[in-house]
Design a protein around this nucleic acid. Sequence first.
DNA 1: TTGTAGGCGTTATCAT
DNA 2: ATGATAACGCCTACAA
Lengths: 335, 335
Amino acid sequence: MNIKEVARRANVSISTVSRVINNTAKVSPDARARVEKVLKETKYRPNSLARELQQKRTNTIGILMSAYDFDSSSIGKSINAITDILKSEGYNIMLGNSRFHEDEEFEFLRVFQEKRVDGILYFASSFSDKHKEILEDYPIPIVMVGQKYDEIDIPYVIYDDYNGAKTATEYIIKQGHQKIGYIGCPLYDTAAGVMRKKGYEDAFREAGINNDIGYEIEGDFTLESGYKAAKELFSRNISKPSALVVATDFMAMGTIRYLTEQGLNVPNDISVIGFDDINVSAYYNPPLTTIRTDKEDAGIQASNLLLSILRKESVTKTHVTVGYELIKRNSVKSI
Amino acid sequence: MNIKEVARRANVSISTVSRVINNTAKVSPDARARVEKVLKETKYRPNSLARELQQKRTNTIGILMSAYDFDSSSIGKSINAITDILKSEGYNIMLGNSRFHEDEEFEFLRVFQEKRVDGILYFASSFSDKHKEILEDYPIPIVMVGQKYDEIDIPYVIYDDYNGAKTATEYIIKQGHQKIGYIGCPLYDTAAGVMRKKGYEDAFREAGINNDIGYEIEGDFTLESGYKAAKELFSRNISKPSALVVATDFMAMGTIRYLTEQGLNVPNDISVIGFDDINVSAYYNPPLTTIRTDKEDAGIQASNLLLSILRKESVTKTHVTVGYELIKRNSVKSI
DNA sequence: TTGTAGGCGTTATCAT
DNA sequence: ATGATAACGCCTACAA
């Protein structure tokens, strides 16, 4: 069933059918009635492909993410906000998850281009020369979320990972801790990996504390890796830390589980501070002290930024940084 | 830039360009070289819309979900598996989240039809007459995930919610508990809501135990609702339960948090069993005893089912039920 | 108010 | 091996 057949059955031209479908011009009540009757009878649905081909816009936004999964990141929260906003503006969403495989990432960039999505929300993680080459003259508007790529001028919405981690560490120091361990994210992730670690380290520097070598270790975002990292850290031949800064709440929970199994009480025996404030954090035992980043807000900001770019509005603020907040709960104790 | 312009620059016909792009017929090395040169120089990308319009398939699968968000359900896990499988088969994904608004659900069904997606994976929640009307002669293959709709013959992949909840309750009973509370999901959800509750209730019936009235209460999937439900349940004028069956792990965590705040130790003072086995469950304090449903497997099964339908294979098993497993950890104690 | 016809960018068919 | 040309289904001048 297509517009031509509808026209034939309603005994009008296809233009008239198009007019009643899109309400784009006056149609006589008589013709309109006949057309609508056929429309209903045949359950006709216009073919978006044809329409979009001719209008040169697809009303579709591509979301490109490179997470292991929805569970180990908190990307889901951002996507909730994004889908809501974009939907209300008439956009649909095409989803691509590269699972950290660069090749797939480039592949999606290609597919999005061939599918002619109107814009892209790009939850990137790492960058290479190939990225630069591709993104440098990519024809579709992109807004990055969670990461920035300094070598190219692309609008972005990021978190203040550096100051967040620094604030967390300073808070721990202020509670009297001196031996403070750090469980971080992989360094290919320039935001959660590099910046948070830097924030942690700089907090010591500025506090004039000499945090000995050997207190840093790396996880991979998962709960399990937090558990393992804590285990590994505690098997090292160093004087035991009295507090742990952990780069994500998920890993912090893995960490606490390990400590608990070792008979250590958090926060009485050892303090732990996380990062993210995911939905479980407030309900964990103990409730997690953490740095809250507003993933939802990031999604909103990114959507709106992309939207105004698509509307060709003169956007002045193409680089936005979402704030953070220290949430004091019950996994940190002063000594 | 389009195929016509490429043809002009390479001094060949558009047919030839099409041939080298799709490798669909022999092309002289000479012509091929010229075309490829232009392809590279112009960074030409074929327009999928045009191709799909003419081929009558979009290589796109629509995923329709009706969750509040990615966090309160464990739908993310299924989607991970789905995206992997579909991607490897050359399909792309279009995502629609209705947020439990029926109208938006129908809207997405319409959009998916207009966008001509090849198939749909439908994470439904509730059903109405309108659903029946729309789905009855919907022209695109659908596979339902997590729910079935008995009034219409649609292939589905579901969990064994009934037996899972029954097994959980039986296990609790076997541990010597008699006063067992239940924190459930909303009943518009026929799977997690209705079936799990039924499993809980039938366990008593068959065990010949008279579980008094007043032990059931309803949450809404969120952690917070689990907390509140526990609070409400314990404020009732009934002899306190010694165990709680909670319909989702998220709610179970909310529940345990409340109990902990009341100075009750889980499992020493009261036992709690959950449902789902989400990623945090094993790392919660205490580690959660729960019914594991394999969301990933459900995603795999659903994808494969849809795939074979699309391939017009004669599929015999259009109704599949994914198994479950009782995971004994440390939130239940025998008395 | 209505209809005709060209074009959107491909692929597919049919000659050559 | 190559090229014309007719679809695919729609929108949009332009003409009537």
